[in-house]
Every structure is written in C-alpha cells, then in structure tokens.
Simulated assay, not measured.
Amino acid sequence: MSSSADNMNEVTRMGDLYDFYGALLTERQRQIIEMYHVEDWSLSEIAESLSITRQAVHDQLRRAGEQLEQYEAVLQLRAAARAQQEAWSKLMRVWAKVRHELSAASQMEMDAAFASMDRTLPGFIGGEVDA
C-alpha cells in the first residue's frame, strides 16, 4: 500500500475515532484536532492562531491521537460499528435474494422495518467506518 493510501487510512481512522470519542478529549484537544483534520490547517497555522509553538500543536495532536486509540482499545466502539455495518450489509444482500418469495404485503412490512432500522443505525455507527 502506498504511503498516500496509508495516510488516507490514518486520517479516516482518526476521524472515526474522533467521532466516537472526541467528547472525551479536552476542549483544546478538540479544537486542535478539528483545525488540523477537519479544516486542514497546517501545524504552523494552528500554532499562530492559538499563540503556541508548532511543537506544542504537534504534541497535542500526538497525545490526543494516543488517547483516542486508548479509548478504542478499551471500548471497541469503532470495531463494533464496523461489525454492525458488515452484518447490516449481509442482511440486506440476503433480503434482496429472498424478498420475492414473500407476499407484497409482507415485503412492504419488511421494507418498512428495514427502513426504520436504517434510520437508527447511523447514530450508533457514528458516520462512515472504513475497513
């Protein structure tokens, strides 16, 4: 895998972890992560904006990333969300294969139940969770 793909996977992973655990970070850590990962500011731009050194920004990002990884190691929310997404995808593939075997009324009832579940899952999953 190229370093560009590795970097993209790391950015995606950090975004996922931030979605799940960002509220557990300090306000300053959240601010720096959002500036860096969401708004795409450079370390120097963040440092200037917050009147701190570039090294302090780097250290804050590293520590916040380590904390997010520790939360995931213990709580496993990202891993659970990935498993939930995979199970949901499998269920929908099976449903597509067997739905024609039910009556139209049963199909509509199942479609409504799936739609209801589909509306609740994004809140649990926390956004896109990539492999």
Rank of each mutant, 00 (worst) to 15 (best):
M1D: 01
S3M: 15
S4A: 13
D6L: 12
T12D: 03
R13E: 06
R13W: 08
M14N: 07
D16V: 14
D19T: 14
Y21I: 08
L25S: 10
T26R: 10
E27T: 14
Q31R: 15
I32E: 00
I33E: 00
I33C: 14
M35S: 11
Y36L: 07
D40V: 01
L43H: 12
S51V: 09
S51Q: 12
I52L: 05
T53P: 03
T53V: 05
T53Q: 05
A56W: 01
A56H: 15
A56I: 01
H58Y: 13
D59C: 02
R63W: 05
R63A: 13
E66A: 15
E69Y: 02
V74P: 08
L77M: 13
A79F: 07
A79N: 11
A80P: 00
A81H: 05
R82S: 09
R82Y: 13
Q85Y: 02
Q85T: 15
Q85P: 00
W88L: 09
S89A: 14
M92E: 04
M92D: 00
R93F: 00
V94M: 03
W95D: 01
A96P: 01
A96S: 12
K97N: 05
V98S: 00
L102F: 15
A104M: 09
A105M: 06
Q107W: 02
Q107Y: 01
Q107K: 06
M108G: 15
E109L: 14
D111S: 10
A112Y: 04
F114H: 03
S116V: 04
S116N: 06
R119G: 01
P122H: 09
G123A: 05
G123S: 06
G127D: 09
D130W: 01
A131E: 02
A131C: 03
